[in-house]
């Protein structure tokens, strides 16, 4: 039945829109994707992929505790996200263990704590939706939280757009001309925690790091201008979310996984065919063709 109904592209797109939960999922996932995509440019250039992974996994116990106490889950997630980063910094400074090792052991520790808590706290926490996301089953209070957090992150990133770019590019110069590098560092971490919180609703804790790095990496292959990179990153994130949700609807696939797979395919496409930095360097190919 389903196979018949998407014989036309029109019904492929419009049929899911007749369901309220699908409209909500498409809208919310696009919003989340836009926020993560915006941040993604900075994280990719700063080289914070591992940090993104760490923060997104570390929010797990926060989410569980917040659910158990009836608090907004974003609050718990935020506290644990920032807490993990502080702990990473502390251990790194006070021991001789290398940074990537510290990051790895702190976030797996937090993540394990989250899993243990879920098994101990008797409540209606759906482990599956935390781990793998549930954009189709998002509640109204979650919608409000997501919109609020998304707007907050977008406003913060917009105001400090240029300073954050400078911070990623040359923090030493930033410091030399009296820009508060300490503040920018924690601003970026705060935005990272908040983006991880909204992102986990779409694709879950395990895959949220993909939302935070893949769009930026894709955009990095396609342009040499920072502003364009941000725009491409946001657009590729939104498009992947839409594709992922549609594919998961029609083929009955895990939604979070589909969204991330869509991002990965877009990245692979850029990796192969990006005009200047792709494997096949299309720009050169066409230049040769014209001659």
């Amino acid at each position: 039945m389903e196979l018949c109904s998407f014989l036309t592209l029109d019904s492929f797109i419009t049929d899911p829109l007749t369901h309220g939960f699908m409209r909500k999922a498409l809208l919310m996932s696009s919003l989340v994707a836009a926020v993560c995509g915006f941040l993604s440019s900075y994280l990719t250039l700063k080289g914070w992929a591992l940090m993104g992974d760490a923060v997104s996994h570390s929010v797990m116990p926060g989410v569980v505790v917040a659910y158990a106490l009836g608090l907004p889950f974003s609050l718990g997630a935020f506290i644990f996200g920032v807490g993990s980063v502080a702990l990473i910094g502390f251990i790194k400074q006070k021991s001789r263990v290398k940074e990537d090792t510290v990051i790895g052991l702190v976030f797996t520790g937090f993540f394990a704590l989250g899993i243990v808590l879920v098994s101990k706290i008797k409540s209606n926490i759906d482990l599956h939706s935390i781990l793998f996301g549930s954009p189709l089953g998002i509640s109204l209070s979650d919608v409000k939280q997501t919109i609020f957090i998304s707007l907050l992150v977008v406003i913060l990133l917009s105001i400090f757009r240029k300073d954050l770019m400078l911070y990623c590019f040359d923090p030493r110069h930033a410091k030399t001309v009296g820009i508060n590098v300490f503040f920018l560092h924690y601003l970026l971490l705060t935005c990272l925690s908040l983006a991880a919180v909204v992102g986990l609703q779409s694709v879950g804790i395990i895959l949220v790091v993909a939302m935070l790095i893949t769009p930026g990496a894709t955009a990095y292959l396609l342009t040499d201008e920072f502003d364009k990179m941000t725009v491409i990153s946001v657009l590729s994130a939104i498009i992947s979310s839409l594709i992922g949700i549609y594919i998961s609807f029609w083929f009955d696939l895990e939604t979070g996984g589909s969204i991330v797979l869509a991002q990965t395919f877009i990245f692979l496409f850029a990796f192969l065919f990006a005009p200047r930095y792709g494997i096949f360097k299309l720009k050169k190919f066409f230049a040769g063709y014209k001659r």
Binding site: C168, F169, R172, H173, K175, T176, G178
Partner: peptide
């Protein structure tokens, strides 16, 4: 710092030359 008194010119290895900036 506040008065822009000092300028620092980094050595070539000190910056990411692939950063998307003109």
């Amino acid at each position: 710092q506040k008065d822009q008194t000092i300028a620092y010119v980094p050595q070539s290895e000190g910056i990411d030359s692939q950063f998307p900036i003109n």
